[in-house]
Computed example of a mutant assay.
Amino acid sequence: MTRAALAALLVAGALAAPPAAQAVPASGTLVAVRGHGDDADLVRVAAAGGPVRVITGGRGIDGEPSWSPDGRRIAFSRTTDGGRRWEIHAVTADGRRIVRVTRAGGFALDPAWSPDGRLIAFAGDGGRIESTGCSSAVWVVRPDGTGLRRLLRDAYAPAWSPEGRRLAVTRDDARGRPRVLIAPAAGGRARPLTAGAAPSWSPDGRRLVVARDGDLYLVDADGTGAYRLTRTPWAELDPAWSPDGRWIAVYAVRHGRQDLYLVPAAGGPARRITRSGPDAGMYAPAWRPEAGGPR
């Protein structure tokens, strides 16, 4: 997430309450960020609602979680100096063990664990400049911190396709407007897909959901068939497609309370699954993989 995306936490809006009979997969689990200002932690959230459980804590900001394909670890970005430097870390799902993955000395953000578990893609500046967005590049690194290499310049927010051969990324155009592109995971030229940011793949790899102007849009992986999934007066951000393909998790702000919601991928009213207090909002949802299934 770029600085501009962090600023989007202040976007005001509201999500309509869904019918009570709407079903939610009881076994679905997400990790998200709960916090405000310079204090944010990773928490575990049940898709059916209920209390959240803290995974990380302490000083600083933990953000942008991404599950390992076996659901045992979570990659995330961390800063302890007010946002001047960010590094990628990994924590066990129970929160008991945290290891530092990168040592960029600048910005390392937007981690995304590959479907085979061998790599973590992230957006970073290589420690040379204190900027993200168009000045960042997409890199990959092994979970033990070795094998660092750059894949793509001027891009951020990488998202692996379920089979692991493609990466969806965001790149800002000359006017600062975000655009989603698809690039080969092995490296090579990226092709434009659609306007928007924060891409998330469907479990079958055929479609993506992107955030655009506060709404969600679906688009086929070849760039065709784009349509608007939501049309609301509020902003729906950080979309994350569920492993069963039925739901898209987002965060939104309602009456000053920032919470997580589930939007049906087939269309329909959203369901609120967290109830935050006025001093700590929820954002950056990420679904725990189903056993043996795609992210």
Results as ranks from 00 to 15, higher is better:
G281F: 07
G124Y: 00
H36P: 05
R246G: 09
R228Y: 00
R53W: 14
P65H: 00
W241E: 08
A8C: 11
P184R: 07
V24Y: 05
G196K: 09
A104L: 15
Y283R: 05
L109Y: 06
V101L: 01
R166C: 06
A211I: 07
G223E: 03
F122D: 08
G133T: 13
R212S: 09
L148P: 00
R44Y: 04
G13S: 00
P289C: 04
P51K: 07
D154M: 14
I74P: 02
F122S: 07
V141M: 08
L237G: 11
L6E: 13
G60D: 05
Y261C: 02
H36Y: 14
A40G: 10
G117H: 13
D238I: 07
G225K: 09
R272L: 02
H89D: 03
G281T: 09
A5C: 04
A46P: 11
G145R: 08
G82A: 11
V43C: 01
R142C: 03
R231A: 14
A270H: 14
P115R: 10
I273E: 07
L181H: 02
G277K: 03
D204Q: 02
P158G: 00
G35Q: 08
G188C: 14
R212C: 03
I74L: 15
Q22D: 13
G60K: 04
R142N: 10
A249T: 06
S131N: 02
A266E: 15
D244K: 01
T146P: 05
G281L: 02
D94H: 00
R254S: 12
A186S: 15
G187A: 00
T79A: 11
V209Y: 02
G95A: 04
D220A: 04
G292H: 14
P285M: 07
R177Q: 12
P294M: 07
D244S: 01
P143Q: 07
A123V: 08
P278Y: 10
G117C: 12
A17K: 13
G124A: 03
A26L: 09
A190G: 02
G214K: 03
V91F: 05
G71V: 09
R246Y: 13
R100S: 08
G268M: 01
A211T: 04
V11Q: 00
P69K: 09
E236L: 01
W86S: 08
A286N: 03
F107L: 13
A186M: 15
